[in-house]
């Protein structure tokens, strides 16, 4: 197991380096350099002063030196300064992170809570109207963009309960009740499509397991269907589901960007969109790097968990 984890960690290294090159490279591909961006086009600055600033930020050095300096900073937690607020980028991200984490966690929680029972029911009642219903609802959920579902939810709750998304954000520690009210709709909007994916996965995985010989044996022993499913089938059927949950948790980090915008939540997705509008490149770099690394680490964790649950994987 240790050897497997070590091998996966080593495999992640070139990907992490690749990510850092992409993130570093994105600001170098933009026409004009960072100094021009900071000063602006109409800035009253002489060419000499521009050169001085370039030297100050190290832009006069060769590209690979610039990259190494930047990468060294990133590894030690220094991702630069926001051009808009003059705050360190890691501070800006850390400030917004709790919102995004809570949203991600709750979305996945709701998605799994709904999906796994639905998937199991669809598999057990294979060929029934129930299964057909579950399948078509998942198809529809998959085709519905989260920002449209979010908009519909806002419309529905405001019409029926006179309830609007709050303009101001309240943290969980300040007022848990108010905080949960703020998060419930965005979590449902974000979790719905993921829930559909997990439902389909649970269903097909369960169907496959129910066809296995050991399940037939368990039934032949005279065990009740409930015991066969809960004790024998479910555990093995859920192994591939865990992978899907992991991969989708990573994709959720992309989805939050949009949902935070829809519901006015001050998370890192909103930070990214605002930074793009204001061309605040250090912050964009910081957020992109953070999310991509988190994505890789989540997938790594899922792989390890998968190998732990299903020992056959380790020996491939």
């Amino acid at each position: 197991m240790t050897a497997y984890i070590a091998r996966r960690l080593v495999q992640a290294i070139p990907v992490l380096i690749g990510i850092s090159i992409v993130v570093f490279g994105m600001t170098r591909l933009i026409p004009g350099d960072a100094v021009d961006m900071m000063i602006g086009i109409e800035g009253q600055v002489s060419d000499e002063q521009r050169q001085e600033m370039r030297a100050l930020f190290g832009f006069d050095q060769p590209l690979h030196i610039q990259y190494l300096n930047w990468a060294q900073g990133v590894v030690t937690g220094n991702m630069g300064i926001s051009m808009r607020t003059s705050q360190p980028v890691d501070y800006e991200i850390a400030n917004r992170l709790p919102v995004t984490l809570q949203l991600t966690f709750l979305s996945m929680f709701f998605a799994v809570l709904i999906a796994i029972p639905l998937g199991i029911i669809a598999a057990i009642k294979s060929g029934s109207r129930t299964e057909a219903g579950v399948q078509s609802v998942s198809l529809l959920a998959l085709a519905t963009p989260n920002f449209f579902l979010g908009t519909l939810l806002i419309l529905f709750t405001s019409r029926t309960f006179g309830w609007f998304p709050s303009a101001s954000y309240v943290s969980f520690t300040d007022d848990p009740w108010r905080n949960m009210q703020i998060f419930i709709l965005p979590s449902i909007a974000l979790g719905a499509a993921i829930s559909a994916i997990i439902t389909r996965m649970t269903r097909s995985s369960m169907l496959e397991i129910l066809g296995r010989e050991y399940v037939t044996t368990a039934r032949a022993k005279g065990l009740s269907e409930r015991v066969v499913i809960s004790r024998h089938a479910l555990k093995n059927a859920l192994i591939p589901v865990i992978t899907v949950v992991g991969v989708q948790t990573g994709q959720l980090l992309g989805g939050v960007i949009i949902i935070e915008e829809v519901f006015n939540l001050p998370g890192i997705g909103r930070l990214a969109v605002q930074s793009i509008e204001r061309r605040d490149y250090p912050v964009i770099q910081g957020v992109v790097l953070f999310v991509a690394v988190a994505f890789v680490l989540i997938n790594l964790l899922v792989d390890v968990l998968y190998a732990y649950l299903d020992p056959r994987i380790r020996y491939n």
Binding site: G18, L253, G254, A272, V273, F295
Partner: peptide
């Protein structure tokens, strides 16, 4: 294959946003 891995290491919307930021 490493290039594919790196592209896959970004959530879809995020990478599209990176490209559009550039």
């Amino acid at each position: 294959s490493r290039i594919f891995d790196v592209i896959f290491a970004f959530p879809v919307i995020l990478l599209a946003i990176v490209v559009l930021a550039v």
